[in-house]
Write a protein that binds this DNA or RNA. Structure first.
Length: 691
DNA sequence: ACGGATCTGACT
DNA sequence: TAGTCAGAT
């Protein structure tokens, strides 16, 4: 539905704050000797000096641009300082920038609703704060105005020659005869200047900002005077501002839609767009997009600032351009392991710091296929329920990859020359986690309960093992039972039955077995993914992808090894507990698939650890949704447990240790789903047939 | 098939 | 839901 039509000038005070060449600033803070020098941040300097991803303003003056190569940058600016992005697990690691971005967001969210728009940008809705300020300390009654405030740029403000611009700005900001809305904007300028000073003081980072009546205009304004400046857009200046503004520079019009506007309608500036009726635009681009275009031509944008300080998803990816394309399963598995490990680490941090849990794992890849007819087909993305724990994510990512590859190649192809190929290459891989929701009940009492009972010294983060010669354990301990416990609580868990570990539940699925087992067999024999470290298969694996550091895959996975599955199946059931919770689970599952039974068996070792996952997954949804959750997902039909919370006898809670009963109760009490307001689509109807 | 690594949002 | 596409930085 179209965004509700707003008056050209709604009463809001919106700011967009944009960090100046953020990555450069982060590096300069780390290395203060770089301050003031032409500097750029570069990743992967091996090929043509690496690609620039941030350029300081000094370097921009010498013509250095983002998306140049390091070599080109040196040419344009021989004195340039190139700083490399940190590398971990053979890929760029942006954590330092993410963390720095969080520092900034924390500060910028102090004065009003704050939406983290990217790693280095936020929108603020300062309407309330501005109104309050106008009532309590109106600018017109100030005897002194901060330097940072009067350094603002006010669009449309005429400054005659020889007149002090700052004094003009001060007068504009403090006018007593301004309209109410302009007074509010002026207050916004004060508030934003103050926030920017706080950011500078507390983080040493400078930023630029735009203050306007809506997000679109605020965003435009923040880019107009950089670095370290702010720009106010009074309503009266909007028309003049937009009239000659290049259409392609409008947010959302930088891509195909903007190009279509240019080539199909001859529109090059927002002013050009003004001449088209709403109906005409709708004819071309659909109702929503048409109306949206008509509105933005007039500086109207009703988008709300969403309250959100944290990202909605996490991803870890890497490209393997041209000659580096991955051509063996072993190399793909290696990189999936690395990417998964990073993702897992970030998910653990997110859980620790923000008490959130992600529910979906998605694999994306880019691939090419030589020869064949439909070689243009894209590698499909695949997703499945996300299971916490590095090895789990690694296994699931690999399974998703195989599912994607199978679709990509077509089932016929995969039957004939399924395994080690010489007709496909992977040019990009990424794993991402989404559907991140808060853990119900902030207390974490269950997790605490367990951590308090664990032997001291065994907890805390497992060190990231970067040991080159580490021998991959054939059966890393603890995975199954502790997967949902935050990092800080992961401990070495003495598994009575190692055979239960390293489960690859996917293979228990009959439908998948049918399709994959051939691949599995082929793989197992030809490429020896299950090969122990040190044998000759490993050598070929390393040779086949020279990008792989000489390091063992940490968890040499027995994924796809049917033997492993057999082992698991043979693994005896654990002694059944007496408590009725486990009885309940077992009874419930006696009628379910064998896969789910296996989870029950796992639960014996650590009932509430695993149960917590159950609750986390299910409590968010309404009872009638629970069933749906358990079906239809590749590769695993259900890797989480599916219990209808209505069917759980609340009295079982009484059998839990008292200190965790409350938390459990909140899980069993279904929560109301947050009502998600869907905003109108913007350009997304671009492909409508009526075009 | 070198603008990389991430992220969001809409639609089907 | 999973999967695709567009767009941004």
């Amino acid at each position: 539905m179209p965004v509700a039509r707003r008056e050209t000038c709604d009463g809001r005070v919106i700011a967009h704050v944009d960090m100046d060449c953020f990555y450069v600033q982060v590096e300069q803070r780390k290395q203060p000797c770089l301050r003031g020098l032409p500097t750029a941040v570069v990743q992967y300097n091996s090929y043509k000096g690496g690609g620039l991803i941030a350029v300081s303003y000094e370097a921009r003056k010498c013509g250095v641009k983002r998306s140049m190569r390091g070599d080109e940058a040196k040419e344009a600016c021989p004195e340039i300082q190139l700083v490399q992005v940190p590398v971990a697990r053979g890929k760029a690691n942006l954590n330092t920038y993410r963390n720095a971005g969080s520092e900034v967001v924390t500060i910028l969210s102090r004065k009003g609703r704050c939406e983290r728009a990217s790693i280095d940008e936020v929108y603020l809705d300062l309407t309330d704060a501005a109104q309050t300020m106008l009532m309590e300390t109106p600018p017109e009654s100030m005897e002194h105005v901060e330097e940072e405030v009067i350094k603002s740029h006010v669009l449309g403000l005429q400054v005659k020659d020889g007149v002090d611009a700052k004094e003009e700005v001060r007068k504009w900001l403090c006018r007593s005869d301004a309209s109410y809305q302009e007074k509010l904007l002026a207050c916004g300028a004060f508030i934003v200047a103050d926030l920017r000073m706080q950011v500078l003081k507390e983080t040493e980072f400078t930023c630029s900002a735009g203050i306007a009546h809506n997000k679109m205009l605020a965003k435009l304004a923040s880019a107009m005077n950089k670095p370290a400046q702010q720009t106010v857009v009074p309503h009266s200046s909007v028309e003049g501002l937009l009239e000659s503004f290049p259409i392609k520079k409008m947010k959302q019009l930088g891509g195909k839609l903007g190009t279509s506007l240019q080539s199909d309608l001859g529109i090059n500036t927002v002013g050009d767009l003004l001449q088209f009726s709403e109906e005409k635009l709708q004819q071309h681009y659909g109702i929503n997009t048409g109306t949206w275009l008509w509105n933005i031509a007039r500086g109207i944008s009703g988008e709300e600032v969403e309250e959100r300080l944290l990202p909605k998803s996490h991803g870890s990816g890497k490209t393997f351009p041209g000659p580096q394309a991955l051509k063996t399963f072993a190399s793909v598995q290696h990189w999936l392991n690395e990417l998964s490990e990073e993702l897992s680490e970030r998910l653990d941090s997110d859980m620790d710091q923000n008490k959130r849990i992600a529910h979906t794992l998605t694999l994306h890849a880019r691939a090419y296929k030589r020869g064949d007819l439909d070689s243009h087909k894209k590698f499909p993305s695949k997703s499945c329920p996300l299971r916490y724990g590095t090895t789990k994510i690694q296994e699931d990512a690999l399974t998703l990859f195989h599912a994607g590859l199978r679709d990509f190649l077509g089932i016929f192809n995969s039957k004939t020359h399924s395994s080690e190929n010489n007709n496909w290459g992977i040019t990009a891989l990424s794993v991402s986690a989404s559907k991140i929701v808060p853990i119900p009940s902030g207390t974490h009492s269950i997790a605490k309960y367990f951590v308090e009972r664990l032997p001291s010294g065994s907890s805390s983060n497992q060190p990231v093992d970067n040991v080159i010669d580490e021998v991959a354990p054939s059966s890393p301990s603890g995975e199954n039972c502790w997967e949902v416990i935050p990092n800080e609580m992961q401990v070495e868990y003495l598994e009575e039955d190692p055979g239960m570990n390293h489960s690859n539940a996917c293979l228990d699925q009959p439908d998948l077995l049918g399709n994959l087992s051939e691949n599995v067999d082929g793989l197992t024999e030809e490429s020896s993914l299950v090969a122990p470290p040190g044998n000759e298969d490993r050598v070929t694996q390393i040779e086949s992808c020279r990008d792989i550091p000489a390091k063992e895959p940490r968890h040499a996975s027995d994924a796809y090894s049917l033997k492993a599955v057999e082992k698991k199946k043979a693994a005896g059931k654990k002694p059944q507990g007496n408590c009725s919770i486990t009885k309940f689970f077992n009874n419930y599952h006696s009628s379910q698939s064998s896969f789910e039974q296996k989870n029950v068996a796992n639960a014996q070792g650590s009932p509430s650890a695993s149960s917590s996952y159950l609750a986390n997954n299910q409590v968010e949804m309404l009872p009638e949704e629970v069933d749906k959750n358990s079906i239809g997902c590749i590769p695993q039909r259900s890797q989480t447990w599916s219990y209808n919370i209505d069917e759980i006898d609340p009295s079982i809670i009484d059998e839990l240790p008292p200190e965790i009963q409350d938390e459990f109760r909140t899980w069993l009490r279904p929560r109301k789903r947050p009502h998600v307001v869907k905003r109108g689509s913007n350009i997304t109807q671009y492909f409508r047939p009526d075009k």
